[in-house]
Design a protein around this nucleic acid. Sequence first.
RNA 1: GCGGGCAUAGUUUAGGGGUAAAACCCCAGUCUUCCAAACUGGUGUCGGCGGUUCGAUUCCGCCUGCCCGCACCA
Length: 502
Amino acid sequence: MLTDKKSKELMDEIVGLCKRKGFVFQSSEIYGGYNGFFDYGPLGAELKKNIKDAWWQDMVQRRDDVVGIDSSIIMNPSIWKASGHVDGFTDPMIDCKESKMRYRADHLFFAEVRIAGEMLGVVSLIESPEMLDEAKKKAEKLKRKLAIKGDLDEIVLICAVDATPEQYEQIPSPATGKAGTLTPPREFNMMFDTHVGAVRNDASKAYLRPETAQGIFANFKNVTDTSRLKLPFGIAQIGKAFRNEITPRNFIFRSREFEQMEIEYFIHEDSDWKTIHADWIKTRREWFTSIGLTSEFLGEEVHPSESLAHYARACTDITFKFPFGEQELEGIAARGNFDLTQHQEKSGKGLEIFDEASKSKLLPHVIEPSLGVDRTFLALICSAYTKDEIDGELRTLLKLHPRIAPVKAAIFPLVKKNENILQISNDLYKKLQRHLNVVTDLSGAIGRRYRRMDEIGTPFCITVDFESLEDNTVTIRDRDTTDQKRINLEEVLPFLLGKVNG
RNA sequence: GCGGGCAUAGUUUAGGGGUAAAACCCCAGUCUUCCAAACUGGUGUCGGCGGUUCGAUUCCGCCUGCCCGCACCA
């Protein structure tokens, strides 16, 4: 593992490269920026598109059991009430005025300490698997301090969000042990809201979606009615999502506007969901390595059962070791049929489907592989970023997989004073351009042109030289090895297509 | 939200109450028959707003953004 200083330097270099070469810009930069938002430049837009295309090809086109949709970002606000986001997508926060510590209200627990009903005081602690034992210890300590005899009543832990106002005043700060220093919980919904229509009032309030998943659930009936799907099947979607994050951090890793790629994979309620869940984890991990993520940087984190949402049975994150730490790339949750149940109930529309195999009507359960495009983007750049030495000269390169590299090949005339070389080069460029994102570059020494391409991750450089005039061959140079071989002009396109699609 | 630091060209940095600089990059040209050659020329900069001042990029205040730590992270 890199030292903090080294990893910070590395991250700075990567952010610098992204800016310098036109991958990622800070949003609204000419107005001083805008915290938590980013813009993708010419190369970034290509790379991002390639990630999404690869995912769509592998998860939708090349599978018989998955179809795609593209739902609107602003939907009937009832959807977000049914899904629980209006009430639940909050992080109520409590500050300790004295210690300046901040707690999430739903992570803060307290217990009243009593002996035979007589109140001795209140203890508080932060949620953990051992918190009941800790509470008992704190209660015993309180008893000794007050020099009171007798057996303690049973300790009952209560979450701070469930405290009555009278109880709340009694809760001591976990940091100082003193009561009265905690601010009331401040509600904070992470959904951005807006208004639809000419009138701005409570009735016109709408939300920017915080996840793409609900667009899938809300269209469940439309899709199953029109697509002749049989269980198990998946519905996939790529799209923007918005969350009013308190602290956007780590470049594009946590931003307020981001893009998700989600699949809701519907399964029979009696099926072996553990196996299907495990299969998806494997499928998704293999996909990450197939597009060039360094497999040693990938990890898995299984959510402990006590921290799962009440409707989820299991959730495993696929993580990536970024320079700033190991962080979630994709969450693969087994969610039961909570969402469909909610939408069926709140909309009043029957959403059950008939399963031929079991001859039963049911609301299927769901496995949800959900990942961030932007996080994948960053993980790919981090995986690809390399520095090496060519004949004593330091070079920077991005070892991006040809499938996702923004530019697939560069076509160079070795010299720009020879009309015939220019002609062949330009003809080849125009021909390749019809199939692939390619560039041409006539300026400067050939070595400089190679290095320019290395730095943006272009996997192949094709040079038209004097020999090309004799035998219709060109050199093709490999980015990672810098090795060159001669191939016939006619073979260039099939070669590149093979590398890009393979 | 809190505490600390920072903000000069595309990048890395120098400078200083009185006409703002270097290197690299980029562009054009000379040269050049395969890995950032050389030479010539060129574009481009003090985050924003306000205050002090004859004059502010420099001093002060506020704002915005970035970094580190705390906290937070469906």
